[in-house]
């Protein structure tokens, strides 16, 4: 399966999935770390893909998503945002709503 197909399958099979640097236990970047903490604060289970361990995904996903940076949070197949947007949506309570709808 090529990289783009793998990405599409991951996003389709996981209602909440975070593409990040490192893993939730040991994030390798401050922005990824903040995204993990915010999702944890919402009490949501989420899948993750470590893009440092998957350089092909790191290369292909930004073009496919038209989004140049990581982390990237997808809920129900839709790009919700990176660290800034996740934080902003959490502060306004919208993130909790979005996540409750798929729980």
């Amino acid at each position: 399966m090529d990289t783009l197909e793998r990405i599409k399958q991951q996003i389709a099979e996981n209602k909440v999935i975070l593409y990040m640097k490192g893993n939730p236990t040991m994030p390798q970047c401050g922005f990824s770390s903040r995204a993990v903490q915010t999702l944890a604060a919402c009490g949501t289970k989420f899948a993750h893909v470590d893009i440092l361990a998957n350089p092909d995904i790191r290369q292909v996903l930004p073009q496919y998503a038209n989004w140049p940076t990581f982390p990237q949070l997808y809920v129900n197949g839709k790009l919700i945002g990176g660290c800034d947007i996740i934080t902003e949506l959490y502060q306004t309570g919208e993130l909790q709503k979005i996540l409750q709808e798929v729980a």
């Binding site: 930004p62 073009q63 038209n66 989004w67 140049p68 790009l79 945002g81 947007i85």
Partner: peptide, 18 residues
């Protein structure tokens, strides 16, 4: 949405970002 707004910016800047 916030994502869509920023995607418009990335589209405009295109190759300068990539």
């Amino acid at each position: 949405s916030r994502v869509e707004q920023q995607q418009m910016i990335y589209t405009a800047l295109g190759s300068h970002i990539t």
